[in-house]
Design a protein around this nucleic acid. Sequence first.
DNA 1: TGTATATTTTTTGTCGACACAAAATGAGCG
DNA 2: CGCTCATTTTGTGTCGACAAAAAATATACA
Lengths: 234, 234
Amino acid sequence: MVATAPRKPTERKRGSGVQFIYGVLRDEILNLTLAPGSPIDEVQLSERLSMSRTPIREALVRLAGEGLVTTLPNRSTVVANIDFLNLHTFFDAITLMYRVTTRLAAEFHTEADLVAIRARQAEFAQAVAAQDALGMIGTNREFHAAIAAAGRNPYYEGLFLRLLDEGRRLLRLYYSSFDDQLPRRYVTEHDEIIAAIEAGDIQTCDRLAKEHADQITTQIRTMIAVDRRQDITL
Amino acid sequence: MVATAPRKPTERKRGSGVQFIYGVLRDEILNLTLAPGSPIDEVQLSERLSMSRTPIREALVRLAGEGLVTTLPNRSTVVANIDFLNLHTFFDAITLMYRVTTRLAAEFHTEADLVAIRARQAEFAQAVAAQDALGMIGTNREFHAAIAAAGRNPYYEGLFLRLLDEGRRLLRLYYSSFDDQLPRRYVTEHDEIIAAIEAGDIQTCDRLAKEHADQITTQIRTMIAVDRRQDITL
DNA sequence: TGTATATTTTTTGTCGACACAAAATGAGCG
DNA sequence: CGCTCATTTTGTGTCGACAAAAAATATACA
């Protein structure tokens, strides 16, 4: 009789609907729960989240603005595909953002920023120690997001966050099968970056950020190269 | 009797509503027709554009994603303010994007790109010759947008376009009172940039882009400094 | 049996209306 | 006369429904 009410009808407050839906969809997209290229049915979603289509559409518009979904005119919106052919543009951009945000953090950070950055680094180290690949992906993002926030440039910060999320999706795609060897090296690199920021050493920050970015990009590239054989998802 | 229909009721096709509203609002915001900080009433807008509130809200969500409007929760959305205190972050970011996109254009441009870039430059030169300050602002944006498109990096391109629009709003703010001395120098600089792109000379592209950006930022800074006396819009 | 056309189905784009939250206004009290 | 609290007003957040567009299906014809 009441089998169709697994979720309490009125639980969320007014005004938080779009934000809630946005968060759910965003997580599911970045976690690959929603596969790239899969269509998003508004009616189905409205039933699942027990909300009207209006807030769902607004959340989709927002996601489209961030490039996480693609809206076909008069046709279904689909989860954005991962463009393997143009990954170099992604690596190029994220490397530059790593460098710029870390440099600015060295220049403009406050003590409160350092506290936040160290806290994120502690969470990251914990995730690495626990061999938690997914947690590592998430905490790594938060670590660099905290550095970007310390840089105090909202334009760089916005692009960087978007790129970090895109990277989260990429890593998620490969870490599911490679969760054995978690590179503890990253923890050390993070520590060095923190020290350079604290010292206000812009040049060192730039170098470390570039090396760190190169590490990650080569790792992703290696992963892609490894299972290119069985991964013909064109 | 029919005095309430200054606009033909059903003129736009289905599916173009949001795009239409988005374009109108965006133009009015960038042209300063809608003053920064002024509230946007959804009902009033729906009457003016003779559309329902639903597509208007979706357009506003999109504009909020681009930072052109700010949405206060449960309260009216307002046109984004110009943050004079943090203009340096804007200059920093747009300078970097000038450099990066021009470098990439030198590397990846095709013949078709050059044709488009030269066409935009012709329009820009024409606007300068005609002493058309507003036209110059618009054509200059299109010129650099064409270069960014030739660079083939959608991440840089997206941020750059956003920054160029923000700059369009800034220039608009000052050119209304300074439309006497239009710097013909920019035309020459553009020509040099085109030559460097065509030659594939990345280093020269980088240098020219940086100089060009410095020109523009110092010009804007000068303008701001000039009427700081009477402009206490805190 | 294959292809072009008509029809149904599915899903989006838009609409008008209601409900709620915050600001603006007014009333009551010290 | 000023301050606090109730009330009205304004405008957003959400909803259910209708209409249109594209895809899917069925039908007719060669």
